[in-house]
């Protein structure tokens, strides 16, 4: 059906756009925690959009169920992984950029 194809293409292109912006954020942002935020937030929305775009491409059979399982799995594990990474960095002593700058100011004054 043509209308399903068009909606599916729009969803896929939007998902790719968010994925690309996440990758761009990984390069442009100045600090580990801001980069983490960019990567994980855009990863979640890109996953949802791309998987729904793919679900519309199937003819609603067993593959739809498999894609929904994949979506549920990624929605739970991907934010957990980002959380674990950020928490480990914080507990390991990594400072955010404003804290680093405050420390440098403290040292020079």
């Amino acid at each position: 059906m043509l209308i399903l194809d068009i909606i599916s293409s729009i969803l896929l292109i939007a998902g790719v756009f968010f994925g690309f912006s996440g990758a761009l954020g990984l390069f442009k942002f100045p600090d580990f925690f801001t980069r983490m935020h960019a990567a994980s937030v855009t990863d979640s929305i890109a996953t949802i959009l791309i998987l729904f775009g793919l679900i519309l491409q199937t003819s609603f059979d067993i593959n739809t169920a498999k894609l929904l399982f994949i979506l549920a799995f990624l929605m739970i594990t991907s934010p957990t992984a980002s959380h674990a990474l950020a928490k480990s960095a914080r507990h390991g002593g990594l400072l955010t950029l404003p804290e680093v700058q405050a420390k440098q100011q403290e040292r020079t004054h």
Partner: peptide
């Protein structure tokens, strides 16, 4: 093991 990572404990036990 990760003592203070409660989120990881719950999610791992689920998965």
């Amino acid at each position: 093991g990760f003592k203070a990572h409660h989120v990881l404990h719950v999610v791992a036990r689920f998965f």
